[in-house]
Write a protein that binds this DNA or RNA. Sequence first.
DNA 1: TTGAAAGCGCTAACAA
DNA 2: TTGTTAGCGCTTTCAA
Lengths: 365, 365
Amino acid sequence: MQTPRSAARAAKLPNPDDSTPSPDRTGSAMSALSVTMAAVAAAAGVSRATVSRVFHGTTPVAQSTRDAVYAAAEKLGYVPNVMARVLAARSSDILGLLLRGPTNPAYGLLFGELQENVSRLGMQMVAVAPSRAEGANFERQALNRLLGLRVGGMFVATGVIHAEMLEPFLDKVPVVIIGRPESHPRIYSVSYDEDSNATQLADAVAAHGHQGVAVVTSSGGNSATEHRRAITMAARLRAHGVRAHPVAAPTFGLIDEGAQEIIALHRAGHITAAMFPSDLRALAFMPYLRAASLRTPEDLSLTGCDGILPGIDLIGFATVRIPVEQAAQRAAEVMKTLLDGQTEIKHELLPGTFLPGRTLGPAPR
Amino acid sequence: MQTPRSAARAAKLPNPDDSTPSPDRTGSAMSALSVTMAAVAAAAGVSRATVSRVFHGTTPVAQSTRDAVYAAAEKLGYVPNVMARVLAARSSDILGLLLRGPTNPAYGLLFGELQENVSRLGMQMVAVAPSRAEGANFERQALNRLLGLRVGGMFVATGVIHAEMLEPFLDKVPVVIIGRPESHPRIYSVSYDEDSNATQLADAVAAHGHQGVAVVTSSGGNSATEHRRAITMAARLRAHGVRAHPVAAPTFGLIDEGAQEIIALHRAGHITAAMFPSDLRALAFMPYLRAASLRTPEDLSLTGCDGILPGIDLIGFATVRIPVEQAAQRAAEVMKTLLDGQTEIKHELLPGTFLPGRTLGPAPR
DNA sequence: TTGAAAGCGCTAACAA
DNA sequence: TTGTTAGCGCTTTCAA
């Protein structure tokens, strides 16, 4: 069942869903895109106002008139001009997504899921990505692209835009920050609970009886998330009475840093498991493991974190899957309530799901 | 050095790149988004037309006037209303990207790269993804979202939109199809050369002296690309005098289909290598290989195809990397020429790069 | 239930 | 070099 609002929206485009697409019927000297509402009105023998009402109006329109308008619209291949509509209505039903690094599978997944949930709730969305080519303020440029379009609401899934940058627009445009923990009192956020993720992994490792564990610890500089995870994992291990050996991986680019150190720790009998702050880092370690003729989990247990890479399940890392789908769903729902005038700001934290995999086993001996 | 056009664009937004963001200075009862060009004009003591000229005009404006306008714009936190601009100018400099499945890393990468190249050429872009929630015609809905925005050009990176669907808009909106081979005489396309990719892999396998090779062949239904690759690989192997054993993998969902059959073929001494139509399928085979206590490449050589999955290089598959970056660059360049009035339609084919990896070795014995 | 008319914020001739 | 003036395609009172 549809809400009145989404029903109105569904009716917005001629030939919405279920009939056969018939683009060629529109073929005339005049391209479909230059068919205006006035043309439809003329063809249907009504005024422009009536056409407008048929498509979005809350005002009732006679059934016969509706039919005539729909018929005319379809015949002419009318595509409503969103620009004109937004301009005249002074309000947009288009949502914007500011997406950092669509190259990252986690963000790509978020985009797809968000699109899905937004549509389900009867809203529309466009995405923009910041580009380095836009210069120093590149994230702000992308933000302005969205603002310039006068989007009706914004999802911000990027670490770099400062909350304060968004402040001047807050009472014009509802904003939901996704992924990054945020505590700004006027901005709603839906983020991954990295403390929970790290804790779940550390608990699992401890439960398998490991007494010495390497924890690969990246610097805070390049990935705050990885850093946070590592810190929490180590602390939690220690709370279990497990020896946590931090292994530094300062440079983000050199993703397999620390590999030799882990092998050495294992050879020296100090560790029976290694925890990585991301699946990618765990993956990067695999060749070293093989080169050292070690097996997992028989010789050394391994854990990652993320669970996002397609195919990662095939490798079978013990990992935590971050709840991208759930974040997308919550973000869309929250946006909807924000648009409906609800204004209570919260900061939601979503824990991931532990995946046992095949790389975490009991401590040897 | 900038072209005049990109210089004009760079000037479009107040405080473009290099100065400190100062959002809070805009804070007043009136939100930044409701500051109009008229307000800026008034504050600068000029007419609206002049403000317009300062931001986009080809007409020269006195330096003192420019300064005054910029100052006023920045002081008020003016964000130009793109909707109004496009409506009045009857032409949009915003490009649209119709992106199928941003969840797929290859599409995510394409999005990012395209954004980068588009910005570099002084253009803007927004992306939309089709959503299943939009019903049967979901790809068309997404197309309409772009068309409704009256984008100045469209990139179409999705397999399902039929070329004919785009026909009615072709003379209004330049279209570049990316990824999927397309031969429509009025639509430019930039696609991956899957025949070349498959051939490179088959040549490499043959060159390593393999005489019997399993080729995992998915059905055309769910992935035309994978099907095409498999067919070409098998044919090319045979051209080299190599026995190609097709291994059927009819269902796309069950990605590890055929694994047991490959193991059996190897046990029977029929094959020394297995070729997969994608890295993901090759990845899915790994656990079976291990379960059978086989090693790669010592016992069995393996090849994949795509080279896109982050971390796939860490695993070291012999594969072909599809040239996403190059496709994005070409597509953006082509769009630019199309927008500049150049109309010669071509269908470009971009071959991938063979990556030797560690899973392809000489045939045993 | 419908139509007329006044804009929405901006651009683009045309004058000055 | 700048201002004036019509619109762009649509929504939305206000009347009818």
